[in-house]
Design a protein around this nucleic acid. Structure first.
Length: 1043
RNA sequence: GGGCCUGUAGCUUAGGUUGGUUGGAGCACCCGGCUGAUAACCGGGAGGCCAAGAGUUCAAAUCUCUUCAGGCCCA
């Protein structure tokens, strides 16, 4: 039984009601469970960090994840949706440090690692409620009762297992990583931290001479960090640049040709030799200082692509301990890492002249020293950006810290192969940003010298000679190695470090490497660690690997998308996911990135309260391709509500208003399609076409196209044409077959739309479905099967005929507007001039055209000649040159004549004579232009394939009919003013000029029928509940109505 | 600094692969009409150096290069 829904659509009320319905009836669980045993569609949730409030970007991700999983579930797949939480990492620690007022790592250790980590754990779930609420409110169906959480012992154990795999494959090793380091705070800073501490500073930049070992010549190098010269081990040149040897001021020097032309502009020098960078490779030079006694070979020329010709000399001094580029080159050439700076930023004792001095403060003294030795060629001031500690404002040093790595470079080929086996949406990321990243993959710096994270499970024997190392791969293994393993264990710091582990080789005590691991490794392990694989759920894992679908924003490309692939590749040598949808970023109204500090975004909750989740979802889905960035602001969602959601609702409301009055029963009252009107068949054809195309778009994640297609169908085809054209059918009071045919069609389409749109806008579709469903249908739209199109109902010819009719309506209305005869006033005749084919395609649909443009009769013709008339007018460009001064007189004379007659005469006699100033002039057809125009009372317009002609003669009968419609319109608006129900009957009294009254009387039945009046009288003083005076075309009318 | 993506009317956008009539829509605006779906509907109008510049071509929103602006990632 279809019920009358609320007239006014309140998103909040409807959505709250539906949320309650889902919860009370466990619909989400039923959607999953009813597909048990079906082909699974495996989704993996990229875990959000719940230590900050969700913002519009998170909403987009969650909406997209939701709609594709809902779609697959309705499509007959078993779609589990396990939620996940990312809980470790530096952002969490920073948040807690701020809260507790801790400034650096020393502060943390003073505070106590146990207490600190407790705070971290608490902080992680600080915003959990907000996340859960928002997730629920936007209708994202994900199982938040059984999430995977990266801080759980089981999860950590799975991560440990995977690290042990890496260890066994000899992929886990200890090396150096150059990081920005604050010597005062004694800590490395993350990229995110240094980004907020750049300042523009003046540093000395110096040109230093390095003497070649076997030759009296110098390499001229350039540096802005003189203090790193102490730890110099090599010089780098660009392999493809040209270097020259010159004599300048008595010295022989080598530098890049391109730089020489800039640096030595105007100076005189003698060119001695030239070579490519490549040829210089391996050339040895004498060290500037002898403080370092490196074990490996040092002090020779190496090649590096990053050497620029923008500044300097084209020869770069290399100190692998203090620069990432330097370090990487050093690794390639196996250079020693000379690190003559202590962790507090001062020089060690072996650097005798400057020992104990802060390195940057020693710069001037080092420069002086070089100058004294004659090794300084020049000194400049260099203005550049330099990072400072955001906490204590000390200048940061780049510093090679010991770190654990996973040797991704060793599995690079597999990475590339597995990546090529993934479907990327959009495709260009596969070989673009992501492919580039993988082709230049570096070893993964895994360890973090922090507290809140998965501890690195590597223990080293403390015996100086033994130094045995073990990577622990399970809790069981750790328990067996330790003497006292607690029952109630926690694998985090500091507990894990309190476990006493004995070396299996020498029985000495072992000590865990103090680091925790990169939290990206945690989340990248989700595809197996969420199942506690391999300790549990081995089958479950096998069934769920690789996953079908992951979806995150663009910034995850080198984050989670990479960490999943990296781990999956070295563990299983396979892709972890088959399809990856990358979403564009959500920006603010001015295309600026949303940031917490600028507060330039709307709180999603406000939008949800005002416009509702469906409008919000529809906006995000339809505004743009998923991978394009989308601007987000409340007005945009408001527009979406008005444009689509309300149109959809109003259409539905229109249908239910009538269907509920008539108690339409979808079981008993459905009319077979064959017996329905062409209009019904047409909308069903359009509808089925839409279904089939929507499916095609969704399959390739072009959800915006699917959404726009449906939107266009609902607004243009269904609401603005089909329903508008069907209104009259529903106004008849009896339950005619035609009315039921209309209901049947509308019912089918609303029910269908609720299913098609259910994954996209799950609330309003549920609301509609629940009202329309019959008892034998599933209890929720989300438990239905997604629709397949019925191609038998697609009729291209009918669609093309309707297209032509709609074109004709358009031009017909425009023409009416142009000739100034209102649509209320019927015209007696219209003619369509077109060919037979067109006529055939539209002749059965002509009633629609009749009604839309209000014409009594439409007939067909093959050409327009009966409606056109030819006249002539003087051809000025011919007459002018020929008759010069007389031309004006001739034109005047012609205009005196009747132009129709003139044309007739000209065609008959070929010439006419006019008299100008007493002179007879003979004119021929050549002197005229033929003009074709409509005969009087004919108006003409055309479409691409037809001409439409109106007979504009208004007879008194036609005028009376039009006037009757004017009256009806006034009464209707008065009914509405009284807020009457559609079925209410009224009595009407009209006071009107007697001449019009006579004309109107013929239309009395019509007026009464249209306005549901049981009585209509023409009286002088109308009375009733509402009495109004109207002015219709200068004529005063007074109408009174009563219920 | 490097790589990648994006830029079309006040706003949201189609078209761009495959160069080819006058660059289409919708919202908002103005005028007119219609209306028992009323935050709707119909007709008309106004609004575009297709970010800027250069090149290729008979022809460029479309292809190429440069610049500018915004974004993401990496330095």
């Amino acid at each position: 039984m279809i019920e009358l829904p609320p007239q006014k659509y309140s998103p909040k009320n409807v959505e709250e009601k539906i949320l309650q319905f889902w919860e009370e009836n466990d619909i989400f669980k039923k959607q999953i469970d009813q597909r048990k045993g079906c082909t699974p569609y495996i989704f993996l949730e990229g875990p959000p960090t719940a230590n900050g409030m969700p913002h519009p970007g998170h909403i987009l991700t969650r909406v997209m994840k939701d709609l594709f999983t809902r779609y697959q579930a309705m499509n007959g797949h078993y779609v589990e949706r396990k939620a996940g939480w990312d809980t470790h990492g530096l952002p969490v620690e920073i948040e807690v440090e701020k809260k507790l007022g801790l400034k650096d790592k020393q502060d943390v250790e003073k505070y106590g690692i146990k207490k600190f980590n407790d705070e971290c754990k608490k902080s992680v779930f600080k915003y959990e409620n907000a996340w859960v609420e928002l997730t629920c409110r936007i209708g994202f169906w994900v199982d938040m009762d059984n999430p995977y959480i990266t801080l759980k012992n089981d999860y950590i154990e799975s991560v440990w297992w995977s690290l042990k795999q890496a260890w066994d494959k000899k992929l886990l090793y200890k090396g150096h990583k150059v990081v920005p380091y604050c010597p005062r705070c004694g800590t490395a800073l993350s990229a995110h931290e240094i980004a907020q501490g750049y300042k523009i500073v003046d540093d000395p930049s110096i040109f230093v001479k390095f003497k070649l070992k076997d030759e009296y010549a110098y390499f001229l190098a350039w540096t802005t960090t003189p203090w790193t010269l102490i730890s110099n081990v090599a010089l780098a040149v660009h392999p493809d640049q040209t270097y020259i040897k010159i004599r300048l001021n008595g010295d022989v020097m080598i530098l890049a040709e391109e730089r020489a032309s800039v640096l030595l502009k105007g100076e005189e020098y003698e060119l001695l030799d030239g070579f490519s960078g490549k040829e210089l490779e391996g050339t040895e030079y004498e060290p500037l200082f002898d403080f370092a006694k490196p074990e490996k070979k040092a002090w020779y020329v190496v090649l590096a692509d990053f050497v620029t010709m923008e500044d300097g000399t084209g020869i770069v001094h290399m100190a692998p301990a203090f620069g990432e580029d330097d370090y990487n080159v050093g690794k390639k050439y196996d250079l020693p890492v000379v690190q003559l700076v202590k962790l507090d930023g001062t020089f060690p004792d072996e650097v005798t002249p400057w020992k104990g001095q802060f390195v940057k403060d020693a710069d001037p003294s080092i420069i002086k020293h070089l100058e004294k030795r004659g090794l300084l060629e020049g000194i400049h001031k260099h203005t550049h950006e330099y990072p400072f500690c955001w906490r204590c404002d000390s200048p940061l040093l780049y510093y090679a810290m010991e770190s654990w790595f996973i040797a991704m470079t060793k599995v690079q080929d597999s990475l590339v192969r597995n990546n090529n086996n993934i479907n990327w949406y959009p495709e260009y990321l596969q070989q673009g940003r992501f492919g580039d990243f993988i082709r230049e993959v570096k070893d993964w710096a895994l360890s973090r010298k922090r507290y809140w994270g998965t501890p690195l499970p590597i223990w080293t024997c403390s015996d100086k000679t033994c130094k045995h190392q073990i990577c622990v791969g399970s809790v069981e293994e750790l328990r067996n190695l330790s003497e006292s393993f607690p029952d109630n264990y926690d694998l985090h710091k500091p507990f894990v470090d309190e476990i006493v582990v004995k070396c299996p080789k020498c029985k000495s005590q072992m000590k865990r490497e103090e680091e925790v691991i990169d939290c990206w490794y945690d989340s990248g392990s989700a595809f197996f660690a969420q199942w506690h694989y391999p300790f549990e759920n081995q089958d479950k894992f096998k069934d769920n690997f690789p996953v079908d679908f992951i979806c995150e924003a663009l910034d995850q490309t080198r984050g989670w998308f990479y960490s999943l692939l990296a781990i999956s590749t070295f563990l299983f040598d396979d892709r972890p996911y088959k399809n990856v949808l990358t979403l564009g970023l959500v920006l603010d109204e001015n295309n600026q990135k949303m940031s917490k500090s600028k507060r330039n975004y709307v709180d999603p909750i406000i939008v949800l309260d005002h416009e509702g989740a469906d409008s919000l979802r529809w906006y995000l889905i339809s505004a743009n391709a998923p991978w394009m960035s989308t601007r987000f602001f409340e007005q945009a969602v408001k527009d979406t509500l008005g444009k689509f959601i309300l149109t959809f609702w109003n259409s539905y409301n229109f249908f239910t208003t009538y269907a509920s009055i008539d108690k339409f029963d979808c079981k008993k009252d459905t009319i077979p399609i064959a017996k329905r009107q062409l209009l019904d068949k047409w909308i069903l054809s359009r509808y089925n076409k839409v279904i089939s195309n929507v499916r095609k778009h969704i399959e390739v994640f072009e959800i915006h196209k699917a959404a726009r297609l449906v939107e266009n169908f609902v607004i243009e085809d269904f609401s603005n044409w089909y329903l508008r054209r069907s209104r009259k059918r529903l106004w008849v009071e009896e339950k005619t077959e035609d009315k039921l045919a209309g209901y049947s069609t509308m019912y089918e389409i609303f029910l269908g739309l609720s299913k098609i749109l259910a994954p996209l806008i799950p609330f309003i579709t549920e609301e509609i479905y629940l009202n329309l469903r019959a008892d034998d249908m599933p209890e929720s739209v989300h438990l239905c099967d997604y629709l397949h199109s019925d191609d038998k109902q697609i009729d291209d010819e009918l669609e093309s005929g309707m297209e032509k009719i709609r074109d004709l309506v358009e031009v017909g209305r425009a023409l009416r507007s142009k000739i100034g005869i209102k649509v209320k006033y019927p015209l007696s005749n219209a003619t369509l001039v077109c060919d037979k084919k067109i006529e055939d395609s539209i002749k059965d649909l002509l009633d629609l055209l009749n009604e839309e443009i209000n014409v009594k009769k439409i007939s067909f013709e093959r050409d327009t000649s009966n409606f056109m008339t030819k006249t002539v007018k003087p051809n000025h460009s011919k007459l002018g040159p020929k008759y010069k001064a007389k031309a004006k007189g001739i034109v005047n004379a012609i205009e005196e004549l009747d132009s129709h007659q003139l044309y007739g005469d000209l065609t008959k006699t070929k010439k006419i004579t006019v008299s100008v100033d007493g002179e007879d002039i003979v004119l021929t057809m050549d002197d005229f232009q033929i003009v074709e125009s409509e005969k009087s009372h004919i108006a003409r317009t055309e479409t691409e394939d037809a001409v439409l002609l109106f007979d504009t003669t208004l007879t008194p009968d036609l005028e009376a009919e039009g006037f009757a419609r004017e009256i009806v319109r006034r009464i209707q608006s008065m009914r509405k003013e009284l807020d009457l129900d559609v079925e209410d009957r009224i009595t009407v009294g009209i006071n009107i000029d007697s001449e019009k009254k006579n004309a109107l009387q013929k239309w009395q039945d019509y007026i009464q029928g249209e306005t549901r009046s049981k009585e209509l009288s023409f009286i002088d003083r109308p009375s009733g509940k509402l009495v109004k005076k109207w002015k219709i075309d200068e004529l005063e009318v007074e109408i009174g109505i009563n219920k």
